[in-house]
Design a protein around this nucleic acid. Structure first.
Lengths: 328, 328
DNA sequence: ATGGCATGAGAAAACGTTTTCAATCGATAG
DNA sequence: CTATCGATTGAAAACGTTTTCTCATGCCAT
């Protein structure tokens, strides 16, 4: 039997209401407050958060739903979310969906049962478009991927611009036959593809883009096949860290010289991109900021439920490395 | 106002007890069960987990306390823990301690307030030694680091053996002046140092070990300084993935040839170790298995609270790569 | 003096479940 | 034909809090 507020009240010689008020910030005379505090330490009382949540009707809990926390991008974002959350006295429930809409639906239902205060969500395209935030019962902040119709807060990268920047960087360095590898489940992949295609069209060049499942293995297989085709690209853009990793593995396995036979560029300044020869050219996303801002927006929304939804668009930073050296 | 079990009962024309039983696995006639299920979908009822936890007195929640989920080792372990947990109908609360004993204490207190079913814990040395699992009120499974006195379950790597393996591998390849970089906060660092030292002593060689804070930055700074000293090592063992990363950055910054001027070997088969030239020799830990087994042991312990504590010791796998090529 | 009025405290209701306890009913055994 | 038993069901208690709702007290203004 664990000790409850009743035991504390008995020990301190006051009512349970007084104990509750002393522990919270209710009006209690200094005398009784001291008595209560003494009783609390004496019997090692720990409040029961389930009871507190049930009665007070707010759980101080947020859900963080991402595809896979093992993706360094989400790892870093998640860490930032948690830091801000815990500092604000909130708990975080982490959910990995593996880009699977069924799992997304399941976890959203779970969030309802948990009566979470809100959710930070990197949704699949299908789910993002269909999301009805009104009937969900809690506010949602989208990250990384935008919802089409979803009238909710979001913090995003300027994906079109970033992808276009990569293409222009490669053009500047003298590359012409530029291929692209994009994830096929998220709106992010689509947006980056759009920026990629626009930049190439502006330059009057053909657009060679392929869509794959968002995993390193899929990217590796796709690029390996591509390199065996008749006219492989001179440079490749990969639309996220996982795909870039797969691409790097494929070129290494095929013994293709980077950047002499194939230049590489992509997204996410993961730690390996600096170490892998000759260094990967990437768009670095402000991962810590994305997580922090998302959580702050959620807290803000909880304070002002009726505030109009806001989208924060952050800029990526081009980190040029050896994988896109100027063409000889 | 969200709909409660009462509304469902009213709609179905039965008592709340019957609804509860129909939703759980109580004895209910097929007729009423069907009525209840119809009512549930009709009014979109979602059980309130806080209320359920309060009444039933088990939270179906486990805490996962690690130093930093951004460390790929813990990311992978955490993912495995969560998969097993969700499949068993349990929730996971993730806590990052940054190797800070104060944060560890704070999170343990939080776990008590959450009335968690149990905790999976990668503890600092100080905390692990002082851990009194009896007065905590929930079972603990230690991972990665052992508790000295702690009479609780644990799943660990055979650290001494693994470290010795690395040393012997380097000896075989012809290296003699072998240095080591170890984390100074965990028992794991200490154990790996022990294995490292024993292997060198068996070979009649001097032991050159340095202890640093468990971060890439600390390792990088320490090695950079070391390389400027009079007699720098010919080969270096780094006691975890972060330290190895720092070491790799240091040698790259100093323009030191690997393995010609300095061979490198370490722990954790993180994705960058394969890509970074000339490939890092590492001990691969069975990360997925560590997380899975830890969660399974916790579930087992919840079923049989009085079972004697069990320690599972897993073996690492040596992955030899270019960074420890045979000496010319 | 007297009528508010702010302040501090306790009693009791409420939060949404699960679980215990008692009751009803049909059927089966004696 | 009746007593007993098993299976369902509902009423009500319980889980540990927070939040009314009262009430007593002392103080200030009239």
């Amino acid at each position: 039997m664990t000790t409850s507020i009743k035991d504390v009240a008995l020990l301190a010689g006051v009512s349970v209401a007084t104990v509750s008020r002393a522990l919270g910030n209710g009006p209690v005379s200094p005398t009784l407050r001291a008595k209560v505090e003494a009783a609390v330490v004496q019997c090692g009382y720990r409040p029961n958060l389930s009871a507190r949540r049930l009665r007070s009707q707010h759980t101080r809990t947020v859900g963080l739903i991402v595809s896979d926390i093992c993706n360094p991008f989400f790892t870093a974002v998640g860490r930032a979310v948690e830091d801000v959350a815990y500092r604000a006295g909130m708990r975080v429930i982490l959910c990995n969906t593996d880009e699977n809409p069924d799992k997304e639906a399941m976890y959203l239902r779970l969030m309802q049962e948990e009566r979470v205060s809100g959710v930070i969500f990197a949704a699949t395209r299908a789910t993002a478009d269909a999301l009805d935030t009104a009937e969900l019962g809690f506010p949602v902040v989208m990250i990384d991927r935008a919802g089409a119709a979803a009238r909710c807060d979001a913090v995003l990268l300027d994906n079109r611009l970033a992808a276009a920047q990569l293409v222009e960087h490669l053009l500047e360095r003298g590359y012409r036959r530029i291929g692209g590898l994009f994830g096929n489940t998220s709106s992010t992949g689509a947006e980056r593809h759009a920026g990629f295609a626009e930049a190439l069209q502006r330059a009057g060049l053909p657009v060679a883009a392929r869509f794959v499942a968002p995993s390193a293995a899929a990217a590796q297989a796709e690029l390996a096949a591509w390199l065996r085709e008749a006219a492989p690209p001179e440079a490749l853009v990969a639309s996220n860290g996982l795909l870039l990793l797969g691409a790097a593995k494929a070129v290494r396995a095929a013994g293709v010289a980077v950047p002499q036979r194939l230049a590489l560029a992509g997204f996410d300044n993961d730690s390996w991109t600096e170490l892998a020869e000759p260094g990967m050219t990437v768009i670095e996303q402000p991962v810590e900021e994305i997580g922090r801002v998302a959580m702050e927006m959620l807290l803000e929304r909880l304070r002002q439920p009726e505030r109009p939804p806001r989208k924060v668009v952050l800029a990526g930073r081009l980190v040029a490395r050896g994988s896109s050296l100027a063409r000889a």
